[in-house]
Design a protein around this nucleic acid. Structure first.
Lengths: 192, 192
DNA sequence: GTCTATATCCGGATAGAC
DNA sequence: GTCTATCCGGATATAGAC
């Protein structure tokens, strides 16, 4: 369902409401222990009512992540993408439920058929290209491949630190990243 | 169960066999879509028979990871820990099922009550300390905190690259890491 | 076009027999 | 120590009410 229906205006709104509500529920109550029946209840719908708008549970979860990315990316200015990226990372730390959701989906994406797989492929491609381009505008004249690899490393560092944070919340992702950047990574990637 | 029973010799052997078999099954057939009933069948046991030796499914999964770590750590020499670490990363890439298992468990570990949580805490603590110490033996005279943070960044980089590899298997984790190390990270962390 | 009810399946967990 | 039987929750598919 949800698939073939061209969605009426009301349907659009319902779908919106479900997404927004689901994002809040997962943010508030954490990923685990939150069933779609809970989300449905908060929307005053049945489980089947919710499922009407999404291909599957996993599809809904990925849509939540896409939605979060839209919000996050709106907070990143072309002038200071790195500084803003760090701010977003720090802010997300206050919504552990969404981080749990993110890492869980990134694990699920290891099956290429999983709806999270295209999401992560697109996301990595986009972020890598963006950071590599930023490097170029900063005057990095090395071959493009080098810039891409630096961007990839930066993203890996951020993701890996987030993973450590999940099991040890005393780590400050932004601080560790800032320091690693300042000390080791491409000197062009300073903090503006 | 499995918890309090001091396990007879035969019990020991059965438990071993289940662990080994389960590791193979997950390595061969991937994490998703592999049920404990499948593992049980391969052991010529019922599901209940398997569950007799482990607290829960999740417990069994974590035990598999601990087992893999034992094997991996045995392959790391005190003289060239970094070089060997890279070799292990490259080798693990040939067993995608176990990587899927690893990233899935690392996501699950975001609940502190989950059996994977202590595993990852211990693992990060151990690895961080080991690499920081290696840095010291290489002549790094900065304050210990700096060495720890470098170690943490190294591990984050490896984990993050692994995460990218999961959705894009054309990435070579070891190559990317080697390059990032050579170009940016602590110059002491060269490759032997 | 929107949603509910229902039926079924599957995987993990547990109780109790042997 | 291992089995059978059973329960429970989540996912999915369908029929049809509104």
């Amino acid at each position: 369902m949800s698939d073939r229906s061209p969605l009426s205006p009301k349907g659009q709104r319902q779908r919106e409401k479900i997404l927004t509500t689901a994002l809040e529920v997962f943010a508030d109550e954490g990923y685990r222990g939150t069933s779609l029946r809970t989300v449905a209840a908060r929307c005053e719908l049945s489980l089947a009512g919710v499922m009407h708008y999404f291909e599957s549970r996993e599809d809904l979860l990925v849509q939540i992540l896409r939605r979060r990315d839209e919000v996050d990316e709106a907070a990143i200015s072309p002038e200071h993408p790195l500084r803003d990226f760090l701010a977003v990372l720090a802010r997300n730390t206050t919504r552990p439920g969404l981080i749990e959701l993110f890492v869980t989906m990134s694990a699920a994406a290891s099956s290429p058929e999983h709806p999270a797989a295209p999401y992560f492929r697109e996301r990595y491609a986009r972020m890598t290209a963006d950071f590599a381009e930023h490097l170029e505008t900063l005057g990095d004249t090395r071959p493009e491949g080098e810039r891409i690899r630096d961007a990839r490393a930066l993203i890996a560092l951020a993701d890996g630190l987030q993973q450590q944070w999940v099991t040890d919340r005393s780590i400050s992702i932004a601080d560790e990243l800032r320091r690693a950047l300042a000390q080791h990574l491409n000197p062009l990637l300073s903090l503006d």
